[in-house]
Design a protein around this nucleic acid. Structure first.
Lengths: 329, 329
DNA sequence: CACCGTTGTGCAAACGTGTACACAGACGCG
DNA sequence: CGCGTCTGTGTACACGTTTGCACAACGGTG
């Protein structure tokens, strides 16, 4: 058991070449004799040599690390995108460093720590972190890829999401089914994406001379959906609840059924947002504004590839939401 | 906008000291004048200087990176543990590199890539990767922390899980409720943890002179639980299904209710394993063998802290499962 | 004053790569 | 043969830190 990792100079000694030649053997398009290369690779396998990526990063000025800033890992709302992104990165020999910024803790400190590792790219899924801070903390050539919607900024690439058309269609159908007392259950009052999502529906209602008759704020969790739904319906006699995400919608639906004894589509319509896989489960069958997660991550990856290729010009990509019609609205 | 990151030597020039002194200013217990330190820290803030962690890692031989090997990110079964672990690492100024090994792809290649980054610790949540490979790929002083159960190996620390007592109690109650035709729905045939979980229940049954009357294999997913449950019950007239994880149990329960038209606790009892948060949702209220995720991650973190402190002696910690009684059994 | 311990700082050498430059040999061509 | 081109390799430096060693300045003690 070799406790210590072997270095390129030591391997060079063993093979009888210089350490530069070792390096060349691992560089696909370097000038090196075919015979020498295979001799080196054989020896490398034998002694378990692998080039040290830390040293390489220092020399190259490229770490092949990517900071991925998220709210939380378990959260189903983001989990599918995280999974897809990590796979896409790994396929490109990039390694993700996950930063969980969801809770109270000092996110800025955390991002600064990641910045010291000279990450090549930064992908921000969390709208808990302000664009300003992100630009401050990662000032280096490699710009930032941000999802969701703060104000415009020339220095970052962004992916925008537009669900206004889908929201319009949902409201249309609900009104046709006789709904008129709409309420909104938001996930947090402080996030841009939450305001944006609410606005899609508020605008759709306004276009028909309607408005939310009541609102409440939860925490994006099942429990908060469950807890907030009851008083919300009580005090407003709501016949429709639009939720800030799918998990809260599931919670609200449970509360409406179990606590209030009302039926989900008929007495109170419930609409989620995200389009998580769970929404399609038989026990939920949730109507929800759904984002195409694959397209979303493809957009992110496309931006990353441009950065890899040296194109630093920021760009904005906009995706639209589709609707998954379920049994709840 | 400074496109380029400032280096310690440049800052030294600016402040009028040597780069060594810069380094000392950031090292809490270094010999340096109080006045000099504050002057340096002020200048660092002004010019946005942060020590380069890559260079430091090269010098220190410690990267403060941790490889976390998982099956998938979205997977609720592991998500809670991942979340807790990432938080614990971040609190200790360690950064996690996530490796998703769940799918077919070349996991070994992926792990080798992470190994080149000289990670300080390796935490393996995935039982898709063999212990042998792990030891091969991360031979360096810092040993490996593995969860779940392959055969014994002297070189790694492990966390074992024992649900036999809990399984026994569950079987007890089911038998008392008149159940006798038990079936098992496993998540995959190839994983150690799956075999182990099945064995807990098989042993509990054997102790009462019973055995599984039928078995099936899914993929740990909701869909596979839904799909496998129907033929399983049909061909065996089962009155109890023990599932390899909670998500499959939820799928099985839906199938039993919707497709077969049977009621969950009375006609067919359903038991999950994992104790994911979702199991407690009102719409599921699943009976499940539950692991204390916090205790689990505390154990992992304890091992990591020992390694940090330089104690390389491997150790094994065993945790027991508790039972969450729900409405499904 | 001679001596010594303490404090603050600079010099220089690592850490393990990648790569520009130099150079030796082989080869082709006039 | 003389010359230019191409191939394969070595030498040396840079990447940005940390840290052992040396040393100067200083203050206290006999």
């Amino acid at each position: 058991m070799s406790r210590k990792r072997i270095t390129s100079k030591e391997l060079a000694e063993l093979v009888g070449v210089s350490s530069a030649t070792i390096s060349r053997a691992f560089s696909p398009d370097a000038r090196i004799g075919e015979e020498t290369r295979s001799r080196i690779l054989a020896a490398a396998r034998k002694y378990g040599y692998q080039p040290n990526a830390i040293a390489r990063s220092l020399n190259n000025q490229r770490s092949r690390l990517v900071a991925v800033v998220v709210n939380a890992i378990g959260n189903p709302c983001e989990a599918e995108e995280q999974q897809l992104l990590v796979h896409a990165l790994q396929a490109r020999q990039l390694l993700p460093i996950i930063l969980c910024c969801g809770d109270h803790s000092d996110r800025l400190q955390l991002m600064r720590l990641a910045a010291t590792y000279q990450v090549d790219h930064v992908v921000i899924f969390s709208d808990m972190v302000s664009l300003r801070d992100a630009v401050d903390i990662f000032p280096t050539t490699k710009p930032i890829i941000v999802s969701f919607e703060p104000l415009d900024n020339e220095e970052v690439s962004a992916i925008r999401i537009d669900g206004s058309a889908a929201a319009d269609e949902v409201v249309d159908r609900l009104v046709a089914n006789g709904k008129s007392r709409f309420t909104y259950l938001s996930g947090t009052s402080s996030s841009w994406i939450d305001k944006l999502r609410r606005k899609w529906f508020a605008d759709a209602l306004a276009r028909r001379g309607l408005a939310f008759v009541a609102e409440a704020t939860g925490t994006y969790s099942y429990d908060s959906g469950f807890k907030e739904a009851v008083p919300l319906v009580h005090r407003s006699k709501a016949d429709a609840i639009i939720c800030g995400n799918d998990v809260m919608a599931i919670g609200a639906r449970d509360a409406v059924k179990r606590v209030l004894g009302k039926s989900a589509p008929d007495d109170v319509a419930i609409v989620g947002q995200d389009g998580i896989a769970m929404a399609a489960w038989d026990c939920h069958d949730l109507t929800t504004l759904s984002l195409d997660h694959v397209a979303f991550i493809n957009a992110v990856v496309e931006l990353i590839e441009r950065h890899e290729a040296g194109d630093d010009k920021p760009d904005t990509i906009t995706l639209t939401c589709s609707i998954r019609w379920g049994a709840t609205a």
